[in-house]
Design a protein around this nucleic acid. Structure first.
Lengths: 242, 242
DNA sequence: CAGCATCCGTATACGACGTAAACATAGCTG
DNA sequence: CAGCTATGTTTACGTCGTATACGGATGCTG
């Protein structure tokens, strides 16, 4: 019977069959991939374990619990953001132009937008975990993003209070914008008629005349331009005229 | 043994002990109160049932399932918004000034802000359910809020596309602003020293120097003024100069 | 009032969930 | 090889959402 490491059934996921199968990075990557593929509600410890060819309890070596795992997902998103920012800037030094903090904020906003559109199913986590975790307990990648934004603002000469105000406006706009952008508008994607596709027949006809008219326009996205335009508006008055 | 409607123990909630104990309004009110008091995670069908002196399954007569109940909570928030708007305007007619659509948006924004601050534990629902429910399936009170905003914009002469763009910016800013405003910053409220209260000792000291400095300022709130200022910025460029 | 349909809350049960605790085994260290 | 630590498994418990079947109360019809 070959005394040892027999081939139990249910030893699926990885080639290197034996022991060092898992690590935090792999767990988080699998979790994010699962969420992207099947949505947040499909993410359970058991399911994620199965995805990795492992029992649920094994995951507890790499995340203290489900909440910590969700925070890990948030961290993964911010790590992806960090990657994108690093890749796009290339190995050249920082762009230290005179008023280039604005373009810096635009770059960060745009990259965040891209990450969110790449992982729409995970975006609710940004809102919910942010509202659950106090500043100092946020994942390191999140804090580094904060640091990056604040560094731009402080270099531009804002004092703490002014920098904080801009930071809040920047974050609010960015978070709100991607949330609105990702709201599902279509009720039945297979329907050819636009009104039915939006499911407008479900809405009370009398009470909502304007909404019915505007709904098709509402279903359009603002895109990155909308993001940038609003950001510019906020920065203009909030800052230069501050 | 009194053959019938004996006084079982566990007949707590309401005086009129008999049958018509429940209705949708009561269920939703109890749910919102429970969430306000103990947080979203305390809201389970069983727990809510107990709160009303009823078995969990009884709730299914008033909400098709847990998700529908959460949507009902969102609806309750928007009904409260509606009340506040009605109360504040008084019985006078609509304010039909020339460019008063701006003040109309400000009034709605402010009232929404107030409702959110009154129910901070429920705010994550706004983000998550909005990202889960397509437009046409949103609760009626939500749609009526949309209608109200769009009516202001259409009366002001915006065409559909322009109105939709302003609507999206308005919604994004509002939602993002309250989310940022409600983020927990304090790690340990009992601590007298501000730095410890924020839990700054938990953050890596070297990598986040600026964040550490700015954190106290970041912990301040923007308040209603911040909301109004940003909204004005957005409306200025987005609209008048559009 | 009697009979009956209808509404409303209960009882019971099932499968999935998060996770505590004890355990077994692989691979390193001496 | 002996022993230690790191890693994954097993088992178990309590809670969750909810499908289904049920019984008693309510209100309509005669």
């Amino acid at each position: 019977m070959a005394k040892g490491s027999g081939n139990d059934p249910a030893r699926r996921a990885s080639d290197r069959g034996r022991y060092g199968r898992l690590n935090r990075e792999r767990v988080l990557a699998a979790a994010l991939e699962l969420v992207d593929r099947e949505g947040l509600s499909a993410l359970s410890m058991r399911r994620l374990g199965a995805e990795l060819g492992v029992e649920a309890m094994a995951l507890y070596r790499y995340a203290a619990g489900k909440d910590a795992l969700l925070d890990g997902l948030v961290e993964a998103l911010y790590l992806e953001l960090e990657e994108r920012l690093a890749a796009e800037a290339g190995p050249e030094g920082e762009d230290a132009g005179a008023h280039e903090w604005r373009s810096g904020l635009h770059r960060i906003a745009r990259a965040t937008y891209d990450v969110c559109l790449a992982h729409p199913q995970a975006v609710p986590l940004l809102a919910t975990r942010m509202l659950a975790v106090p500043l100092a307990r946020r994942p390191l990648a999140v804090l580094k993003d904060h640091e990056r934004v604040l560094a731009l603002l402080r270099e531009a000469g804002f004092d703490d209070n002014r920098a904080a105000a801009v930071f809040r406006a920047f974050t609010a706009w960015l978070l709100g914008y991607v949330s609105v952008e990702l709201r599902p508008m279509v009720d039945n994607p297979d329907e050819p008629d636009p009104a039915f596709r939006l499911g407008l027949h479900r809405m009370p006809p009398q009470e909502l005349p304007i909404l019915r008219d505007v709904a098709p326009a509402l279903a359009e996205r603002g895109g990155p331009q909308g993001l940038a335009a609003g950001l510019d508006s906020l920065l203009d008055r909030f800052v230069e005229a501050g």
